[in-house]
């Protein structure tokens, strides 16, 4: 359970911020992105963990990249086939999962020195930890920025008639950064003992 809370990749290790800012305007792409990253981290962790004894140390980054790239391409094709709208919304960010710091970090730090089962769990945990933050940020951004959740209007019409206006700032990456900051703030004040 470590990566979900106490060692969350986004709010504690501050990894993967760039994609967290880019894909969280709406809840749906954020959800898909979270799932995609979880799958890719878990799978690549397993693969690298299985190969870890045969990979020469000097070219390990290249090997890791090849594995990740293959998985990303796979996920990208699946998305294009079954969820084209979301794939278009996520556009380049699916491809950029390759460069996501969480991935390389987990491969280097964990999969290279642990067995496949542990690596699978580690990958799942970190992917889900990333997904949770993405979903929280996207929830607030979509709710306050466009008044919808998963594309459905949740803020009733009479609010708009009485002068409510969607917050355009929420649509901008700057606000996502501030939201991530708030989550970190809340997280740190709950987990006080984690601080060094």
């Amino acid at each position: 359970m470590g990566p979900l809370n106490a060692n969350n990749p986004v709010v504690v290790q501050i990894l993967g911020i760039c994609s967290a800012l880019a894909v969280t305007v709406q809840l749906k792409p954020a959800l898909v992105m979270g799932i995609a990253v979880t799958i890719i981290v878990a799978m690549s962790n397993v693969v690298i963990s299985l190969l870890r004894n045969t990979i020469p140390m000097r070219i390990r980054i290249i090997v890791q990249l090849v594995v990740v790239a293959a998985l990303v391409t796979l996920v990208s094709e699946v998305l294009k086939a079954f969820a084209y709208d979301v794939a278009v919304q996520l556009s380049v960010y699916i491809g950029l999962i390759i460069t996501n710091c969480i991935l390389m970090g987990r491969l280097e730090a964990f999969a290279m020195s642990n067995g496949p089962w542990d690596s699978l769990l580690d990958g799942l945990g970190n992917g889900l930890g990333y997904a949770i933050i993405l979903i929280i940020v996207a929830f607030f951004r979509e709710l306050l920025g466009s008044g919808t959740l998963m594309g459905f209007h949740v803020i009733p019409q009479w609010c708009y008639e009485h002068g409510y206006v969607n917050n355009g700032m929420m649509m901008m990456p700057a606000m996502a950064l501030i939201l991530v900051g708030c989550i970190i703030w809340v997280h740190r004040s709950i987990n006080k003992e984690e601080k060094k």
Binding site: V165, N167, G168, M169, M170, M172, A174
Partner: peptide
């Protein structure tokens, strides 16, 4: 600035 970017129409 917050008002300007968040609620440009107003």
């Amino acid at each position: 600035a917050f008002l300007f970017f968040a609620y440009p129409t107003k």
